[in-house]
Simulated scan of single mutants.
Amino acid sequence: MSGFRVGIMDPAIASRPRVDSFTRASYLSAVACGVDSFWVPDHLNALFPRTLWQPKFAAGAKVLPSADAYLEPWTMLGNLAARNRMARLRLGVSVTDTGRRNPAVTAQAAATMNLLTRGRFILGIGTGEREGNEPYGVEWSRPVARFEEAMATIRALWDSKGELVNRDSPYFPLRNAIFDLPAYRGKWPPIWIAAHGPRMLRAVGRYADGYFPAFPHTPQEYAQRLDALRSAASDAGRDPMAITPALWVMVVPGRSSDEVDEALDSAVARAGGLLASDEFYARHGAEHPLGVGFTGAQDILPQDWDEQTALSYIKKVPMSVLREMYLCGTTDEIIDRAIQWRDYGVRHLVVANIGPLQRHLRKGLLSTVLFGRAVRKLKKL
Protein backbone atom coordinates (compact mmCIF):
# COMPACT_ATOMS: atom_id res chain seq x y z
CA MET A 1 0.00 0.00 0.00
CA SER A 2 1.58 3.29 -1.05
CA GLY A 3 1.28 6.60 0.74
CA PHE A 4 0.08 7.40 4.24
CA ARG A 5 -3.61 6.93 5.07
CA VAL A 6 -5.66 8.30 7.94
CA GLY A 7 -8.84 7.02 9.56
CA ILE A 8 -11.12 8.20 12.35
CA MET A 9 -12.46 5.97 15.09
CA ASP A 10 -15.90 6.77 16.48
CA PRO A 11 -16.87 5.59 19.99
CA ALA A 12 -20.36 4.49 18.82
CA ILE A 13 -21.87 5.21 22.23
CA ALA A 14 -25.54 6.16 22.64
CA SER A 15 -25.79 9.96 22.92
CA ARG A 16 -28.29 12.83 23.06
CA PRO A 17 -30.56 14.13 21.62
CA ARG A 18 -30.55 11.25 19.10
CA VAL A 19 -28.96 7.97 19.98
CA ASP A 20 -26.53 8.36 17.07
CA SER A 21 -26.01 12.14 17.24
CA PHE A 22 -22.35 11.81 18.19
CA THR A 23 -21.65 9.22 15.49
CA ARG A 24 -23.38 11.36 12.85
CA ALA A 25 -21.25 14.36 13.83
CA SER A 26 -18.11 12.21 13.87
CA TYR A 27 -18.85 10.80 10.42
CA LEU A 28 -19.50 14.26 8.93
CA SER A 29 -16.25 15.48 10.45
CA ALA A 30 -14.41 12.53 8.88
CA VAL A 31 -15.89 13.42 5.49
CA ALA A 32 -14.97 17.09 5.92
CA CYS A 33 -11.40 16.20 6.87
CA GLY A 34 -11.06 13.98 3.80
CA VAL A 35 -9.94 10.90 5.70
CA ASP A 36 -9.60 7.48 4.13
CA SER A 37 -11.54 5.34 6.61
CA PHE A 38 -14.17 5.48 9.35
CA TRP A 39 -14.39 2.91 12.14
CA VAL A 40 -16.70 1.73 14.91
CA PRO A 41 -15.71 -0.47 17.88
CA ASP A 42 -17.17 -3.80 18.95
CA HIS A 43 -17.81 -3.61 22.69
CA LEU A 44 -20.63 -4.53 25.04
CA ASN A 45 -19.24 -2.27 27.75
CA ALA A 46 -16.35 0.11 28.30
CA LEU A 47 -12.82 -0.61 29.49
CA PHE A 48 -13.46 2.18 31.96
CA PRO A 49 -14.66 2.36 35.60
CA ARG A 50 -18.34 3.23 35.28
CA THR A 51 -18.36 5.01 38.65
CA LEU A 52 -16.10 7.71 37.20
CA TRP A 53 -18.50 8.50 34.38
CA GLN A 54 -19.96 11.58 36.06
CA PRO A 55 -20.04 15.26 34.98
CA LYS A 56 -17.68 16.17 37.82
CA PHE A 57 -15.03 13.95 36.25
CA ALA A 58 -15.87 14.09 32.53
CA ALA A 59 -17.75 16.80 30.63
CA GLY A 60 -18.75 14.17 28.06
CA ALA A 61 -21.06 12.60 30.65
CA LYS A 62 -23.48 15.48 29.98
CA VAL A 63 -24.12 14.31 26.41
CA LEU A 64 -23.22 10.62 26.69
CA PRO A 65 -25.33 9.36 29.63
CA SER A 66 -23.38 6.11 29.96
CA ALA A 67 -19.86 5.12 28.99
CA ASP A 68 -21.12 1.53 28.68
CA ALA A 69 -23.98 2.19 26.22
CA TYR A 70 -22.17 0.89 23.14
CA LEU A 71 -24.23 0.62 19.98
CA GLU A 72 -24.11 -2.74 18.21
CA PRO A 73 -21.37 -2.32 15.58
CA TRP A 74 -22.72 -4.30 12.65
CA THR A 75 -26.11 -2.58 12.86
CA MET A 76 -24.31 0.77 12.98
CA LEU A 77 -22.10 -0.18 10.03
CA GLY A 78 -25.16 -0.98 7.94
CA ASN A 79 -26.58 2.41 8.85
CA LEU A 80 -23.32 4.11 7.87
CA ALA A 81 -23.12 2.18 4.61
CA ALA A 82 -26.48 3.63 3.57
CA ARG A 83 -25.18 7.22 3.88
CA ASN A 84 -21.66 6.52 2.61
CA ARG A 85 -22.57 6.41 -1.08
CA MET A 86 -21.15 9.82 -1.91
CA ALA A 87 -18.21 10.08 0.51
CA ARG A 88 -17.01 6.57 -0.31
CA LEU A 89 -14.97 6.20 2.87
CA ARG A 90 -13.71 2.78 3.75
CA LEU A 91 -15.73 1.50 6.70
CA GLY A 92 -14.31 -0.81 9.32
CA VAL A 93 -14.99 -2.54 12.63
CA SER A 94 -12.21 -2.05 15.16
CA VAL A 95 -12.16 -4.78 16.16
CA THR A 96 -14.74 -7.53 16.29
CA ASP A 97 -14.40 -10.38 18.73
CA THR A 98 -13.80 -14.07 18.03
CA GLY A 99 -14.90 -14.99 21.56
CA ARG A 100 -18.47 -13.69 21.55
CA ARG A 101 -19.14 -14.06 17.82
CA ASN A 102 -19.30 -17.31 15.93
CA PRO A 103 -16.90 -16.98 12.97
CA ALA A 104 -19.53 -18.12 10.48
CA VAL A 105 -21.71 -15.17 11.54
CA THR A 106 -18.72 -12.82 11.30
CA ALA A 107 -17.91 -14.18 7.84
CA GLN A 108 -21.49 -13.52 6.76
CA ALA A 109 -21.62 -10.01 8.26
CA ALA A 110 -18.30 -8.98 6.74
CA ALA A 111 -19.20 -10.36 3.31
CA THR A 112 -22.55 -8.53 3.48
CA MET A 113 -20.85 -5.26 4.40
CA ASN A 114 -18.38 -5.72 1.56
CA LEU A 115 -21.25 -6.08 -0.89
CA LEU A 116 -23.17 -3.11 0.53
CA THR A 117 -20.08 -0.85 0.44
CA ARG A 118 -18.96 -2.12 -2.97
CA GLY A 119 -15.66 -3.39 -1.69
CA ARG A 120 -14.95 -0.61 0.82
CA PHE A 121 -15.19 -2.61 4.05
CA ILE A 122 -12.35 -3.73 6.35
CA LEU A 123 -12.81 -6.56 8.83
CA GLY A 124 -10.84 -5.65 11.94
CA ILE A 125 -10.68 -8.69 14.20
CA GLY A 126 -8.95 -9.91 17.34
CA THR A 127 -9.30 -12.05 20.44
CA GLY A 128 -11.32 -9.39 22.25
CA GLU A 129 -10.84 -8.63 25.93
CA ARG A 130 -11.86 -10.37 29.12
CA GLU A 131 -14.44 -7.64 29.94
CA GLY A 132 -16.43 -8.38 26.80
CA ASN A 133 -16.43 -12.14 27.26
CA GLU A 134 -16.13 -13.51 30.78
CA PRO A 135 -19.02 -11.48 32.31
CA TYR A 136 -21.30 -12.84 29.57
CA GLY A 137 -20.47 -16.50 30.05
CA VAL A 138 -17.81 -16.84 27.34
CA GLU A 139 -14.89 -18.99 28.48
CA TRP A 140 -11.64 -16.99 28.45
CA SER A 141 -8.82 -19.41 29.25
CA ARG A 142 -7.51 -19.85 25.67
CA PRO A 143 -8.47 -16.76 23.64
CA VAL A 144 -5.62 -17.07 21.13
CA ALA A 145 -6.37 -20.71 20.33
CA ARG A 146 -10.03 -19.78 19.81
CA PHE A 147 -8.95 -16.88 17.60
CA GLU A 148 -6.77 -19.08 15.39
CA GLU A 149 -9.63 -21.52 14.87
CA ALA A 150 -12.02 -18.66 14.10
CA MET A 151 -9.68 -17.30 11.43
CA ALA A 152 -9.28 -20.72 9.84
CA THR A 153 -13.08 -21.09 9.84
CA ILE A 154 -13.69 -17.72 8.16
CA ARG A 155 -11.13 -18.46 5.46
CA ALA A 156 -12.54 -21.97 4.91
CA LEU A 157 -16.06 -20.59 4.41
CA TRP A 158 -14.95 -17.76 2.13
CA ASP A 159 -12.86 -20.16 0.04
CA SER A 160 -15.57 -22.81 -0.23
CA LYS A 161 -17.20 -21.49 -3.45
CA GLY A 162 -20.58 -22.62 -2.15
CA GLU A 163 -19.53 -26.22 -1.65
CA LEU A 164 -20.22 -28.11 1.58
CA VAL A 165 -17.54 -27.46 4.19
CA ASN A 166 -16.43 -30.01 6.77
CA ARG A 167 -13.75 -29.08 9.25
CA ASP A 168 -12.70 -30.50 12.59
CA SER A 169 -12.12 -27.91 15.29
CA PRO A 170 -12.25 -27.91 19.09
CA TYR A 171 -14.20 -24.64 18.96
CA PHE A 172 -15.99 -24.32 15.61
CA PRO A 173 -16.44 -27.68 13.87
CA LEU A 174 -18.16 -27.48 10.48
CA ARG A 175 -20.47 -30.28 9.35
CA ASN A 176 -21.79 -29.90 5.80
CA ALA A 177 -21.76 -26.15 6.30
CA ILE A 178 -22.80 -23.94 3.38
CA PHE A 179 -21.54 -20.44 2.68
CA ASP A 180 -22.78 -19.09 -0.63
CA LEU A 181 -22.59 -15.30 -0.38
CA PRO A 182 -20.52 -13.98 -3.29
CA ALA A 183 -17.33 -11.98 -2.93
CA TYR A 184 -17.54 -8.44 -4.27
CA ARG A 185 -15.97 -8.60 -7.75
CA GLY A 186 -14.15 -11.74 -6.66
CA LYS A 187 -12.56 -10.19 -3.56
CA TRP A 188 -13.33 -10.75 0.10
CA PRO A 189 -12.93 -7.87 2.55
CA PRO A 190 -9.40 -7.37 3.83
CA ILE A 191 -8.79 -8.74 7.32
CA TRP A 192 -6.85 -6.54 9.72
CA ILE A 193 -5.76 -8.32 12.89
CA ALA A 194 -5.16 -6.63 16.24
CA ALA A 195 -2.05 -8.47 17.44
CA HIS A 196 0.69 -7.96 20.01
CA GLY A 197 2.16 -11.23 21.26
CA PRO A 198 4.34 -13.64 19.22
CA ARG A 199 1.58 -16.17 18.53
CA MET A 200 -0.86 -13.50 17.35
CA LEU A 201 1.84 -11.97 15.14
CA ARG A 202 2.28 -15.36 13.47
CA ALA A 203 -1.48 -15.41 12.87
CA VAL A 204 -1.18 -12.02 11.15
CA GLY A 205 1.45 -13.52 8.85
CA ARG A 206 -0.80 -16.49 8.01
CA TYR A 207 -4.20 -14.87 7.66
CA ALA A 208 -4.17 -11.06 7.61
CA ASP A 209 -4.20 -8.34 5.01
CA GLY A 210 -3.43 -5.74 7.68
CA TYR A 211 -1.70 -5.42 11.04
CA PHE A 212 -3.82 -3.31 13.41
CA PRO A 213 -2.59 -3.14 17.04
CA ALA A 214 -4.12 -0.82 19.63
CA PHE A 215 -2.73 -1.61 23.10
CA PRO A 216 -0.04 0.87 24.24
CA HIS A 217 3.45 0.20 22.89
CA THR A 218 6.31 2.17 21.35
CA PRO A 219 7.17 2.87 17.70
CA GLN A 220 10.30 0.78 18.14
CA GLU A 221 8.23 -2.17 19.37
CA TYR A 222 5.89 -1.67 16.42
CA ALA A 223 8.79 -2.00 13.98
CA GLN A 224 10.05 -5.16 15.69
CA ARG A 225 6.61 -6.75 15.56
CA LEU A 226 6.19 -5.72 11.94
CA ASP A 227 9.43 -7.56 11.10
CA ALA A 228 8.23 -10.63 13.02
CA LEU A 229 4.86 -10.84 11.25
CA ARG A 230 6.49 -10.30 7.86
CA SER A 231 8.80 -13.23 8.56
CA ALA A 232 5.75 -15.30 9.48
CA ALA A 233 4.08 -14.26 6.21
CA SER A 234 7.13 -15.36 4.23
CA ASP A 235 7.17 -18.70 6.06
CA ALA A 236 3.50 -19.13 5.09
CA GLY A 237 4.30 -18.48 1.42
CA ARG A 238 2.63 -15.06 1.40
CA ASP A 239 3.89 -11.68 0.25
CA PRO A 240 4.94 -9.95 3.49
CA MET A 241 4.82 -6.50 1.93
CA ALA A 242 1.16 -6.97 0.99
CA ILE A 243 0.16 -6.70 4.67
CA THR A 244 -0.92 -3.12 5.48
CA PRO A 245 0.85 -1.77 8.59
CA ALA A 246 -1.88 0.10 10.50
CA LEU A 247 -2.28 1.46 14.03
CA TRP A 248 -5.12 2.66 16.26
CA VAL A 249 -4.23 5.36 18.78
CA MET A 250 -6.04 7.79 21.09
CA VAL A 251 -5.35 11.50 20.66
CA VAL A 252 -5.30 14.23 23.33
CA PRO A 253 -4.88 17.63 21.63
CA GLY A 254 -4.31 21.01 23.29
CA ARG A 255 -3.17 24.55 22.52
CA SER A 256 -0.26 24.39 24.97
CA SER A 257 1.64 21.90 27.09
CA ASP A 258 -0.27 23.09 30.17
CA GLU A 259 -3.59 22.50 28.44
CA VAL A 260 -2.50 19.03 27.35
CA ASP A 261 -1.32 18.17 30.86
CA GLU A 262 -4.66 19.32 32.27
CA ALA A 263 -6.50 17.03 29.85
CA LEU A 264 -4.18 14.12 30.67
CA ASP A 265 -4.85 14.64 34.37
CA SER A 266 -8.59 14.08 33.87
CA ALA A 267 -10.21 10.92 35.20
CA VAL A 268 -10.90 9.51 31.73
CA ALA A 269 -7.34 9.92 30.48
CA ARG A 270 -5.88 8.58 33.72
CA ALA A 271 -8.22 5.58 33.64
CA GLY A 272 -7.04 4.93 30.10
CA GLY A 273 -3.55 4.57 31.53
CA LEU A 274 -4.69 1.39 33.27
CA LEU A 275 -4.96 -0.22 29.82
CA ALA A 276 -1.17 -0.24 29.47
CA SER A 277 0.69 -3.34 30.64
CA ASP A 278 2.96 -3.57 33.67
CA GLU A 279 5.84 -4.00 31.20
CA PHE A 280 4.95 -0.59 29.74
CA TYR A 281 4.97 0.91 33.27
CA ALA A 282 8.36 -0.63 34.03
CA ARG A 283 10.00 1.55 31.39
CA HIS A 284 8.90 4.51 33.49
CA GLY A 285 10.26 3.07 36.73
CA ALA A 286 6.75 2.31 37.98
CA GLU A 287 4.53 -0.65 38.82
CA HIS A 288 1.06 -1.06 37.35
CA PRO A 289 -1.61 0.05 39.87
CA LEU A 290 -3.27 -3.36 39.51
CA GLY A 291 -0.07 -5.23 40.33
CA VAL A 292 3.12 -6.73 38.97
CA GLY A 293 2.62 -8.54 35.67
CA PHE A 294 -0.84 -7.09 34.96
CA THR A 295 -1.43 -7.24 31.21
CA GLY A 296 -3.64 -4.15 30.89
CA ALA A 297 -6.57 -3.88 28.48
CA GLN A 298 -6.71 -7.61 27.78
CA ASP A 299 -7.63 -8.52 31.36
CA ILE A 300 -9.07 -5.44 33.07
CA LEU A 301 -12.52 -5.82 34.71
CA PRO A 302 -13.38 -2.37 36.11
CA GLN A 303 -17.17 -2.49 36.08
CA ASP A 304 -17.64 -3.31 39.79
CA TRP A 305 -15.16 -0.80 41.23
CA ASP A 306 -16.66 1.82 43.51
CA GLU A 307 -15.66 5.45 43.03
CA GLN A 308 -12.96 5.51 45.70
CA THR A 309 -11.38 2.29 44.45
CA ALA A 310 -11.26 3.63 40.89
CA LEU A 311 -9.77 6.95 42.07
CA SER A 312 -7.14 5.15 44.13
CA TYR A 313 -5.98 3.25 41.02
CA ILE A 314 -5.88 6.15 38.58
CA LYS A 315 -3.95 8.39 41.00
CA LYS A 316 -1.07 5.90 40.73
CA VAL A 317 -0.77 6.31 36.94
CA PRO A 318 2.39 8.33 36.18
CA MET A 319 2.00 11.27 33.82
CA SER A 320 4.97 9.96 31.83
CA VAL A 321 2.99 6.80 31.03
CA LEU A 322 0.08 8.88 29.77
CA ARG A 323 2.30 11.12 27.64
CA GLU A 324 3.85 8.09 25.95
CA MET A 325 0.73 6.00 25.39
CA TYR A 326 -1.42 8.79 23.93
CA LEU A 327 -0.74 10.75 20.77
CA CYS A 328 -0.87 14.02 22.67
CA GLY A 329 0.33 17.61 22.38
CA THR A 330 -0.22 20.69 20.28
CA THR A 331 -1.13 20.13 16.63
CA ASP A 332 2.51 20.34 15.55
CA GLU A 333 3.62 17.99 18.33
CA ILE A 334 0.97 15.45 17.32
CA ILE A 335 2.21 15.57 13.74
CA ASP A 336 5.84 15.17 14.84
CA ARG A 337 4.94 12.08 16.85
CA ALA A 338 2.85 10.67 14.01
CA ILE A 339 5.85 11.08 11.72
CA GLN A 340 7.84 8.94 14.12
CA TRP A 341 5.23 6.17 13.86
CA ARG A 342 5.29 6.55 10.09
CA ASP A 343 9.07 6.27 10.05
CA TYR A 344 8.82 3.01 11.99
CA GLY A 345 6.46 1.52 9.43
CA VAL A 346 2.86 2.68 10.01
CA ARG A 347 1.00 3.36 6.75
CA HIS A 348 -2.62 3.69 7.94
CA LEU A 349 -3.10 5.62 11.18
CA VAL A 350 -6.56 5.45 12.81
CA VAL A 351 -7.09 8.14 15.44
CA ALA A 352 -9.70 8.71 18.14
CA ASN A 353 -10.09 12.02 19.95
CA ILE A 354 -10.61 11.64 23.70
CA GLY A 355 -10.19 15.38 24.33
CA PRO A 356 -13.99 15.93 24.70
CA LEU A 357 -13.96 13.63 27.73
CA GLN A 358 -11.89 15.92 29.95
CA ARG A 359 -13.36 17.82 32.90
CA HIS A 360 -14.28 21.11 31.22
CA LEU A 361 -16.87 21.13 28.46
CA ARG A 362 -15.50 24.26 26.73
CA LYS A 363 -12.01 22.82 26.45
CA GLY A 364 -13.46 19.49 25.42
CA LEU A 365 -15.33 21.14 22.55
CA LEU A 366 -12.21 23.09 21.58
CA SER A 367 -10.32 19.81 21.35
CA THR A 368 -12.56 18.76 18.44
CA VAL A 369 -11.37 21.80 16.49
CA LEU A 370 -7.73 21.03 17.30
CA PHE A 371 -8.28 17.37 16.44
CA GLY A 372 -9.70 18.34 13.03
CA ARG A 373 -6.65 20.50 12.32
CA ALA A 374 -4.33 17.66 13.27
CA VAL A 375 -6.19 15.17 11.07
CA ARG A 376 -6.02 17.49 8.06
CA LYS A 377 -2.27 17.83 8.59
CA LEU A 378 -1.89 14.08 8.99
CA LYS A 379 -3.49 13.68 5.58
CA LYS A 380 -0.57 15.60 4.08
CA LEU A 381 2.13 13.28 5.42
Rank of each mutant, 00 (worst) to 15 (best):
L181I: 11
G197T: 05
Y171E: 08
Y207F: 15
V252F: 07
K187Y: 10
A194E: 03
A233D: 12
P253Y: 00
V204M: 04
Q220C: 10
R167K: 14
A282D: 11
A228H: 08
K187C: 11
G205T: 02
D278M: 05
A203I: 10
E279Y: 11
Y211S: 11
R155Q: 13
A271E: 13
P245H: 05
E279Q: 14
Y222P: 04
A232R: 01
H196N: 08
S277Y: 01
D209R: 03
A177Q: 15
H196M: 09
Y222I: 07
R167C: 10
V252Y: 03
P245F: 05
L264P: 00
A282V: 06
P219Q: 13
R155I: 10
S231F: 04
D227A: 15
W248Q: 13
A223S: 15
V249S: 06
H196Y: 11
A156K: 08
F179G: 10
L274M: 12
D159P: 06
P245S: 07
F215L: 10
R175W: 11
A156I: 02
V252L: 12
P219D: 14
R202I: 00
V249C: 08
S277E: 02
V251K: 03
G210D: 02
D278R: 01
P190S: 01
A208Q: 05
A203N: 06
Y207Q: 03
M241V: 12
Y184Q: 12
